[in-house]
């Protein structure tokens, strides 16, 4: 099992080799049972201040929210349109 990470706009440039179609799969470390969305972002090299919106399994979440194995996590900077 692993966690699927999806990134948007400028956040993509912060993770070398990021593939928009497939996203990024990250496995928890041995012995690690959970991680927060914020810790996960730091682990892949995204500064937390760049993140405005976090969704875990398509639900609005926080950086402090807990991510479990098999989850899908999406990070967005401040974006808007209309």
């Amino acid at each position: 099992m692993s966690i699927l990470i999806k990134l948007s706009t400028t956040l993509r440039d912060m993770v070398p080799g990021y593939e928009p179609e497939t996203g990024l799969s990250v496995s928890l470390k041995d012995g690690e049972s959970s991680i927060t969305a914020g810790e996960l972002a730091s682990r892949i090299g995204i500064p937390l201040e760049e993140i405005k919106i976090v969704m875990i399994n398509s639900r609005q979440s926080e950086l402090a929210s807990v991510v479990a194995d098999g989850d899908r996590v999406a990070y967005f900077p401040a974006v808007g349109g209309g």
Binding site: A78, V79, G80, G81, G82
Partner: peptide
């Protein structure tokens, strides 16, 4: 954001 990606960012 809007300049770089337009509203299509949504």
């Amino acid at each position: 954001g809007l300049a770089e990606y337009g509203t299509a960012v949504l």
